[in-house]
Simulated assay, not measured.
Amino acid sequence: MVATAQATLLHGLSRGARPRLQVEAVRVDSTLRGAGLGARLMAWVEQHARDRGAGLVQATSDRSRTGAHRFYERLGYAPSHLGFKLLLD
């Protein structure tokens, strides 16, 4: 694997019922980080969202992944929400 991301188009009622694109599991091989692959991957994700009429891209990241948080912020993403999880059996 070189780089990967999971992108899901979500439809809902908020933001004028415009779809949003949820991006998760963004990964770049550790030996290739810093070469711009992650930024190019996210640019593709953002264009993919625009092409489908999405009004925003939202990225999720585990609280402990501070390097990922810096990466998203460098790309212009702003931390905006607090998320909650309920694990089911």
Rank of each mutant, 00 (worst) to 15 (best):
V26N: 01
V23G: 01
A68Q: 11
S64D: 15
T4L: 11
V28E: 00
L10S: 00
S64I: 07
W44H: 13
T8R: 03
A3M: 09
V57M: 00
S30T: 13
R27H: 13
Y72K: 02
V57G: 00
Q22S: 15
M1G: 05
K85R: 12
V45G: 00
P79S: 08
V26Q: 00
Q58L: 08
W44G: 09
H69F: 13
D29L: 14
D62W: 14
A43T: 13
R65E: 08
A49W: 02
T31R: 12
S61K: 08
G67H: 02
T8V: 14
E73N: 02
A17M: 15
G55S: 06
A17C: 08
S14C: 13
T4R: 07
Q47D: 06
H48V: 09
A5T: 04
G76I: 11
G12E: 05
R50E: 09
G16N: 03
V23P: 01
R63Q: 08
H48Y: 13
A5P: 06
V2K: 11
R63L: 14
L21R: 03
S30Y: 02
S64T: 14
R52W: 01
V28Q: 05
A17E: 05
R20Y: 07
S61V: 14
R18W: 01
V45I: 08
A17K: 14
L88F: 12
D62A: 15
G76E: 04
A59P: 12
L41T: 08
P19T: 05
G16H: 10
Y77P: 12
D89G: 11
E73P: 03
R20I: 14
A17T: 11
G16W: 03
H11Y: 07
A59K: 04
H48F: 12
P19D: 01
R52K: 10
G12K: 07
P79R: 13
S14R: 13
H11S: 10
R33M: 07
A5I: 07
H11V: 10
H11F: 10
S30N: 03
H81E: 13
G36A: 10
M42G: 04
A39E: 04
A59C: 14
D51I: 03
G34H: 04
A49T: 07
G83W: 05
P19F: 05
V45D: 00
R74N: 02
A35V: 03
E24Y: 06
S61H: 09
L88V: 15
Q6P: 01
T4C: 05
A17Q: 11
S61G: 05
R70M: 11
A78L: 12
E46I: 11
L88Y: 10
T8S: 06
L10E: 03
G12L: 14
L32F: 06
D89K: 05
G12C: 07
H81Q: 15
H48C: 07
G38A: 11
G34L: 06
D62R: 14
Q58F: 10
G55T: 08
A68I: 09
